[in-house]
Simulated assay, not measured.
Amino acid sequence: MTTTEPSRSKFVRGFIAVTAAVFVICGPFESYSDSAHAQTAPPAFPVTVATPLAKRIKTWDEYSGRFEAVARVELRPRVSGFIEQVNFKEGSDVKEGDLLFTLDKRPFEIAVESAKADIARAKAQVEFAQADVTRAAPLAESKVLSEQVFEQRKSSLGVAEAAVMSAKAELKSAELNLEWSEVRAPISGRISDKKIDVGNLVVGGQVNSTLLATIVSIDPIHFVFDAAESDYLRYERLSISGGRMSSRSAANPVRIKLADETEWTHEGKMDFVDNAFNERSGTMRGRAIIDNKDGLLSPGLFARLALYGGDVDALLIPDTAIVSDQARKIVYTVNADNVITATTVTPGTMYEGLRVITAGLKPSDRVVIEGVANPAVRPGAKVAPAIGSIKAPDKTAEKQ
């Protein structure tokens, strides 16, 4: 025991000395840990934030649809006969009254001449009957001729005069058939290809008359689309409250964008809303009318339509501030502690170069408008926000 105690004492004194030396050199362990943490903490990244731009705007609801001709005519002959000439270029624009098809006129010309001959014969009978009545009148007064015979002669004159009227009606019918042997364009528009060639016999004036071609009007042109029940109810409630007149009674404005266009180039107005919902789709059919003087728009062409939906108070932000997160659309906002927060939003249409946010943002939210592309700017990150502002681009017209 006496030999062991000095050894332990020496060991303890040596351990204490070494510990003290480490404490002197490195300092307390807690202070060292705090210093290391302070050196490794990431700096706050600079971003630019701004509150959404609050503005009363015109809203536009978008729909898909297609163009339809205002008028569509199937060309069918009114009389039967052989096609003698085709007087148009297939697929070309025609004007009302243009000669399109010519039937063999000879049978109709003969019918006209025959009707004229019938008129001449009837007039001759009228002249004879008139002379007979003139001769019989004094004889009837002197009682030489019986009153019955005199009435018969006057009756013959009336029959002859009626025969003239009938012959004139036949002449008009024959002349009309001769006129119908030339098939002319009933409307101005664009004609299809011919459905029958020269030399064929066509049947006219019946339910199943021969189809010769079709013509569709081009200017103006209709655009037809379907609106959901929710949109219809919203429009009707706005009309009742006075916020927006119904398209049944007002020509609300529309804009149209074709498949190869980025802006709403074509303008028109509503001119029809259907009287009932489609039982299968549960939608209401609407129709707009658009000028088409250059003939660019064609029946059957698909496009997008924006319909005026009323004035509302909206929040606007730059489109670049919106980030896609799988199926969600989010914007980065900065809270009171300058920490990034992901806020889910519902984007609407574009207005004057800015995106309308229909849900998810408050007017007081600080939205990150610059620095969103920085990988370090993510939810939970500390940032150094600089105050900016959201302004609409320098444009005089609204774009969507």
Rank of each mutant, 00 (worst) to 15 (best):
218 I>E: 15
379 P>K: 14
370 E>V: 00
124 A>V: 06
108 F>Y: 13
179 E>I: 03
181 S>F: 08
265 T>I: 08
282 G>Y: 15
245 M>S: 15
13 R>K: 09
351 Y>E: 05
29 F>E: 03
334 V>Y: 02
163 A>H: 03
289 I>T: 14
172 K>P: 05
370 E>G: 00
102 T>P: 12
281 S>T: 03
279 E>S: 08
152 Q>E: 10
250 A>W: 11
185 A>L: 05
52 P>G: 13
135 R>T: 04
107 P>I: 08
279 E>I: 06
15 F>N: 13
62 E>W: 05
212 L>I: 08
27 G>K: 04
183 V>L: 13
64 S>R: 10
243 G>V: 05
221 I>H: 15
319 D>M: 03
354 L>R: 00
277 F>M: 05
112 V>T: 13
46 P>G: 11
155 S>Q: 03
82 F>T: 02
89 K>Q: 10
20 A>R: 04
120 A>C: 10
367 V>L: 01
165 M>W: 03
366 R>N: 01
129 A>S: 04
218 I>K: 15
40 T>F: 14
81 G>Q: 11
246 S>L: 11
382 K>N: 12
213 A>P: 14
353 G>H: 12
324 S>N: 05
12 V>E: 15
368 V>F: 00
203 V>W: 10
53 L>N: 10
212 L>P: 09
264 W>R: 06
